[in-house]
Design a protein around this nucleic acid. Sequence first.
DNA 1: AGCGTAGGTTCAATAAGGAAACCATCCCCA
DNA 2: TGGGGATGGTTTCCTTATTGAACCTACGCT
Lengths: 177, 177
Amino acid sequence: MRWNKLEDEACSVARTVSVIGDRWTLLILRDCFLRVRRFEEFQARLGVTRPILASRLRKLVKDFVLAKVPYQERPLRYEYRLTQKGLDLYPIVMSIVHWGDVHMAGRKGRPLLHQHVNCGKTFDPVMICSACGEPLSPKHVHVQRGPGATSPRHLPPHLPVAEAKRQRPARSSRSQH
Amino acid sequence: MRWNKLEDEACSVARTVSVIGDRWTLLILRDCFLRVRRFEEFQARLGVTRPILASRLRKLVKDFVLAKVPYQERPLRYEYRLTQKGLDLYPIVMSIVHWGDVHMAGRKGRPLLHQHVNCGKTFDPVMICSACGEPLSPKHVHVQRGPGATSPRHLPPHLPVAEAKRQRPARSSRSQH
DNA sequence: AGCGTAGGTTCAATAAGGAAACCATCCCCA
DNA sequence: TGGGGATGGTTTCCTTATTGAACCTACGCT
């Protein structure tokens, strides 16, 4: 399957992955949230090759995750800043960091700590239900067909595909199978 | 930079990305949380080629994200199940889904809805501070050097590298921080 | 004129991914 | 005793992506 096909799939994971589902892209975004903004700085910190960095930044701009804004004129220079769409990636980046902290930290402990400015404490991110405020566990979440569901390929296997067929009543003569 | 070097970096994002930072891997994990468990089922749902699927599953097992457990004998067959380490990826997958729902849904709306079994309501995931319970915003989080910090390359640029050197003198008194 | 800086592009060599076919077990059934 | 099907892969060949190194451009400084 080609990657430009991914964004056309009726699956929010596939669509998101078509934007950020690349190793370098995720590292670039990490640095964006650490307030890195310039080509040379990304390149020095990441150790990525320049052609790849240029192509990833171009794609993130095209997808409105980053914006290229001039920071000086006359040698006209741009820096890359997170848009609101990009800032909204924060929970993804934070949960990636947290999983790494918990499961991949060496014996020396986690490389970075996060302090919440509002309360002053060092914290971990916790994901909760917007309706009741309880922490989320995969066992307590039930997935349902949404209005944008189309192909049965991305539905959970426990949702009967038959539901999809009910929506196409155009058949008159029951072709057998 | 080679990808096997990634997991050695003192950065939780790099370490996590070395495990799941691959387009197909993220889609495989999506399906794992939808209770897909068998090779043929992954292959049919994802449209991934068989060699790639085999290599990704092998890697996830090696990294203890999935476990291969027999579901029948006598043709001995295995299925792939999330370990606890794998289940802990749920916040990452959920935040990816949510970003796609918000920013990449077509005009028909989101493909899937999530219902919280505990409260019965359709919900969105929200990330909060474990210390005070407030929703997290990148602007209200301050990053600090942690005990596992080594290379200044992955520190935020606003943390002075000099701090790393202060920890160098071999201290005889004051063993713990 | 010559050097430095920022932000790229070009090019040849290598690694990874894709499509299709093939292989290995084991079971069932005639 | 020899198919045929189910499951879970591997092999092969070809195309695409990534890497590393060098090069380019526009400007400013001395």
